[in-house]
Design a protein around this nucleic acid. Structure first.
Lengths: 123, 123
DNA sequence: CGGTATCCTTCTCGATACTG
DNA sequence: CAGTATCGAGAAGGATACCG
């Protein structure tokens, strides 16, 4: 093994890897996946569950996740219009990772904040 | 347990969580961490190992990771100037996660691509 | 070698208004 | 309820030039 990293070991699909992770781990998608892993939710319920997200950003995140096969858009009722979003089996494969990431950030946030203070002070 | 997700269970630090993950899992940082987990590298070596990254973006990613305590900047020689970047113990705590993410993207990329074709066709 | 500074373009994102 | 359309500000990102 001479490779120096997973991505470096295959020049061909490096870009596609990064693109996929970018689309799935972006600002809002992690929180959307976290919510939907627990239960299907409707648009506005999802919006309420994710503080500070705008309608536009949430729509964009949902479309991107839908396109990548992570979530499914189900029309539950036509009049009045009701749409439910639910996680797909493919999306479920990300659940443990999403959980681990959120746990990591919880556990390590204090250390990171101390590191930031050190960095900002010496500058 | 009534909470519907990790982030939703603590409104106070939701923003800080997301900010941290944003800074650590962005476009280039994952690849930087992946590389540095295997061995310390100098600036231009790192640049060569990460295709398509520009000097500016790599510098920005390294500064951000350094500020968050994930990597350490070590001046190995002054003349000629040589700078080595290495992972910190705090950064090491992300290694398994980074590996898992890169593995996940490798395994699931084909399924995702099929999902994209389906989505794009029906539209 | 390992950056910083500047310009300039592109893309993101929020706010707002409107629709089926 | 669940979006789409449009606009404008600001951030991100590449190209280029220069510095210790």
């Amino acid at each position: 093994m001479q490779e120096t990293g997973h991505l470096a070991s295959d020049g061909q699909i490096t870009g596609a890897h990064r693109e996929l992770l970018d689309q799935v781990l972006d600002k809002w998608s992690l929180q959307v996946l976290d919510q939907l892993c627990e239960q299907p939710l409707r648009f506005n319920a999802l919006r309420r569950a994710i503080p500070l997200v705008t309608q536009k950003s949430l729509t964009a995140a949902l479309r991107r996740l839908e396109r990548n096969g992570m979530v499914e858009r189900v029309i539950a009722s036509s009049r009045p219009l009701a749409v439910e979003y639910r996680i797909t089996p493919l999306g479920k494969t990300l659940q443990d990772l999403v959980d681990a990431l959120l746990r990591w950030s919880t556990v390590n946030l204090p250390s990171v904040q101390r590191a930031r203070e050190r960095f900002d002070d010496e500058a």
